[in-house]
């Protein structure tokens, strides 16, 4: 099972859960399975511009990339605003 780790605000929106174990074949599949999917993805299904997805420490921009069952996805909010 791949692991997804959410930052604080998203964990709050996910009912307080920060770590998810998901059986998904692609990076996008894992994101879409989260209860905060509509905060990570816009209405077209694209990752929002300031949401950064890291898979095992590497930035991943392709939601169709295959996801290893041992992978760890970290969601990182780009710094914006003041």
């Amino acid at each position: 099972m791949a692991v997804v780790i959410l930052p604080g605000l998203l964990a709050t929106e996910a009912g307080g859960q920060k770590r998810f174990e998901l059986g998904a074949e692609t990076v996008g599949g894992a994101l879409r399975a989260l209860p905060v999917a509509n905060l990570l993805l816009d209405e077209t299904g694209a990752v929002r511009p300031l949401v950064h997805v890291y898979v095992d420490g590497e930035r991943e921009r392709d939601l169709d990339s295959p996801l290893a069952p041992t992978a760890t996805i970290r969601i990182v909010a780009a710094i914006a605003g003041g």
């Binding site: 605000l9 998203l10 509509n38 905060l39 990570l40 929002r48 949401v51 909010a77 605003g81």
Partner: peptide, 8 residues
């Protein structure tokens, strides 16, 4: 609204 996560 959020700069990162959009409007809801």
């Amino acid at each position: 609204n959020s700069w990162v996560y959009g409007g809801t």
